[in-house]
Design a protein around this nucleic acid. Structure first.
Lengths: 261, 261
DNA sequence: CGTCGTATTGAAAGGATTCAATTCCTGTGG
DNA sequence: CCACAGGAATTGAATCCTTTCAATACGACG
């Protein structure tokens, strides 16, 4: 069912997808491809690269520096769009790598064009979705700039849990996490050694445990407080739902609430 | 002249603005407002906040943490859009403050709607422009995560120079910079004390000077190499110009090149 | 059973912060 | 014209966080 796919569910937080909208999404979904863990979907500098919607598995966007170090910009889970920017630009400014084996649907530039042409609401919904990703990016940036290693780690894992929860892949108490300490380090601007140390401290303090590919929040409220995790931050990005429709076609703006499912 | 305004010039890198497009922009420009240095245009949490196009002066977006520290997410100069996300969301997830006295035009949600309805190209141009801002954000994030204090500072000032150059406010050798060392520190995840120290080191090494509100690149090439500043990064974000037009109205996609003015 | 990637730990070195104090500038008022 | 106030810049010293290097343990896999 197309309307139950992670991406459709995301967009439907903004607008009620009409039949034709879903049909268009369905076309995209038919272009599904598989990538093995470790493979790059998109490479820095590559021209005419595609974008994807991640259907299954984990991926990450990252940038490689000349000195060999890398910075992971974002982790991606089911429903996320990958490399949207790179189809608008001449070349991609980042890499996207599959962390686990993944399935992703290729989004052509023509798909984007037709989605934009479909209706003002559809175009806005996509801008909204992209803006939400930017919000997450900003939150990461703030963490890198102003939070301690322990806060960063806790914050990052809480955020992942929240996002997984949105697409029903996590119960907010624990989740399977395929990330290595190296990847966590590259995402949080730390060394793997230090990630390890801090992870142990977090475990010993009784706040959370990350062992054997599984994250468990032993003291959820304590952790939220410790990481200064803003539980409303996703709610704040809810659409306003007061966007006027000068050219409304078939999509209908949806009344309030989000996680009401 | 509307078409010579910084924002129109930005967009026209993507498409050739038609008469009606310009007229629409002109409407926005008529809603011009002034803000004194230090004033917040947009506040975190604030609902129904506006967006703006910055016409003159410097501003910054920032996030305040509970412990009182703050992280500046981006500096804004003429032609930049401010708080675009906050009109799509229920509440703003960041603050925007005037660094100098500024002039900014208010963008209403209806402006965005009508721009989106105007043509597929116009909508894409706006998405493209927003994506470009994201690229800058990503570059900052990489710097925070993986670069030394000196590299960050050099990189930041080189990037500002590049952007100022785009809107004709800088000759790539030196520029007036209203930022205090505190603001630089808040943007780069450093303490003001350390910014000061590193600024002195950069000066003594003969790479660059930042004194008396003026930044001078004493050894431009050396600085670019030191900061690993990618001079092509703005070029990479050029539009592909192969976006199909299933519903072309009056705007025409423009042939290649950007800074050809 | 050996191998390779990941996790763990210790010790030393380095980078950045904090706190505290001093100097420099610039605008204001006498 | 000068004194003064207040913000910004500068500097020093001690401390803390993180990294680097080096070595070991662990676990899945062929």
């Amino acid at each position: 069912m197309v309307q139950n796919s992670p991406f459709a569910r995301k967009l439907s937080a903004y607008l009620e997808l009409s039949g034709p909208d879903l049909a268009a999404l369905s076309d995209v979904y038919d272009r599904r491809r598989k990538f093995p863990a470790g493979q790059d979907l998109i490479s820095q500098g590559q021209e005419n690269s595609s974008a994807f919607i991640l259907m299954k598995g984990w991926a990450c966007s990252y940038v490689l520096l000349e000195d060999g170090s890398r910075q992971i910009v974002a982790f991606h889970i089911a429903g996320d769009t990958l490399g949207l920017r790179s189809i608008l630009f001449r070349g991609s400014d980042h890499n996207v790598e599959a962390i686990t084996n993944i399935e992703a649907s290729e989004v052509l530039i023509s798909d984007l064009a037709s989605a934009f042409g479909r209706s003002t609401e559809m175009a806005t919904a996509i801008l909204w979705s992209a803006s939400r990703d930017v919000s997450a990016l900003v939150a990461n940036l703030v963490g890198l700039g102003r939070r301690s290693a322990a806060e960063r780690i806790a914050h990052c894992l809480l955020e992942l849990a929240t996002r997984l929860h949105e697409v029903d892949l996590c119960d907010m108490h624990s989740f399977d996490c395929p990330l290595s300490q190296y990847q966590l380090a590259d995402a949080l601007g730390l060394s793997a050694v230090h990630v390890n140390r801090v992870l142990r401290e977090l475990r010993e303090s009784g706040l959370m445990t990350f062992q054997k590919r599984r994250v468990t929040f032993d003291d959820f409220d304590g952790l939220v407080a410790f990481a200064q995790f803003d539980r409303t931050y996703l709610k704040d990005t809810l659409p306003k739902n007061r966007f006027p429709s000068p050219k409304s076609n078939h999509s209908v703006i949806r009344p309030l609430q989000y996680q009401a499912r």
